[in-house]
C-alpha cells in the first residue's frame, strides 16, 4: 500500500508531511501543558525523513482559497472539500489516502477558522518568505525554528486580517 515510500516513518504513515506542516498551529487547539512540551522536539526529529511535497504548501492553498478569504468562505471551502475528500465518501481503495488528505484539510481549516491562529499563521507566512509560501513553510518546519514564535500573541498587524 505504501510501497512507493522509502522512509520507515512513511511506511507506517507515521508522520506524514501534511501533519508536520500543520503541526505548529495544532498546538493552539490542544490546550494544556503537554502540547507545549512536545512541539519542540517533534519537528526537529521527523521533518527530515521526507517532505513528500506533492501537496500545496500554504494552508490557503490546501483549502483552495485566497489569503483574504472571509470566515464564511473558509467554512464553505472546507465543507466542499470534505464532500469530496472525506474517507466516508470515497471508494474503498482510496480510504487511506483520503484519510491523510482529509486530515490535512481539517488541519488547515482549524487553523484558518480560528482568528488568532490564523493571524499567527499569516505572520509566519509573511515574515519568513517574500519568495513563495511553499519554500518558506517547508524550511520553517525543517529547520525547527517555529517554536520560537509559538508564544507571540496578536498585534495590530495581524489584527488587520480581521
Amino acid at each position: 500500500m505504501f510501497s512507493s515510500s522509502n522512509s520507515i516513518f512513511l511506511v507506517h504513515s507515521f508522520f506524514p508531511a501534511s501533519q508536520l506542516k500543520a503541526s505548529r498551529p495544532k498546538k493552539a487547539y490542544f490546550p494544556g501543558k503537554i502540547s507545549a512540551s512536545y512541539t519542540a522536539t517533534e519537528n526537529r526529529v521527523f521533518t527530515s525523513t521526507n517532505m513528500a511535497s506533492s501537496s500545496p504548501a500554504s494552508l490557503y492553498d490546501v483549502l483552495g482559497i485566497s489569503m483574504g478569504a472571509s470566515g464564511n468562505e473558509i467554512k464553505a471551502a472546507y465543507r466542499k472539500l470534505a464532500r469530496t475528500c472525506h474517507p466516508d465518501v470515497v471508494s474503498m481503495n482510496q480510504k487511506e489516502t483520503s484519510a491523510n488528505e482529509f486530515m490535512k484539510i481539517h488541519s488547515a481549516y482549524s487553523t484558518l477558522s480560528d482568528p488568532s491562529k490564523r493571524a499567527q499563521y499569516d505572520r509566519q507566512l509573511h515574515g519568513h518568505s517574500r519568495r513563495s509560501p511553499l519554500t518558506s513553510s517547508n524550511i520553517a518546519s525543517m529547520s525547527g525554528y517555529r517554536p520560537r514564535y509559538s508564544h507571540s500573541g496578536m498585534n495590530w498587524e495581524t489584527d488587520q486580517c480581521w
Binding site: P16, K26, T41, E42, A99, F102, M103, S110
Partner: peptide, 17 residues
C-alpha cells in the same frame, strides 16, 4: 496523558514525545 484529545475530528493522527 492524552495523545489524541477528546473531540478531535476523525480520522486523526497525533503524536507526542
Amino acid at each position: 496523558v492524552p495523545v489524541i484529545p477528546r473531540n478531535t475530528t476523525m480520522p486523526a493522527r497525533r503524536d507526542l514525545v
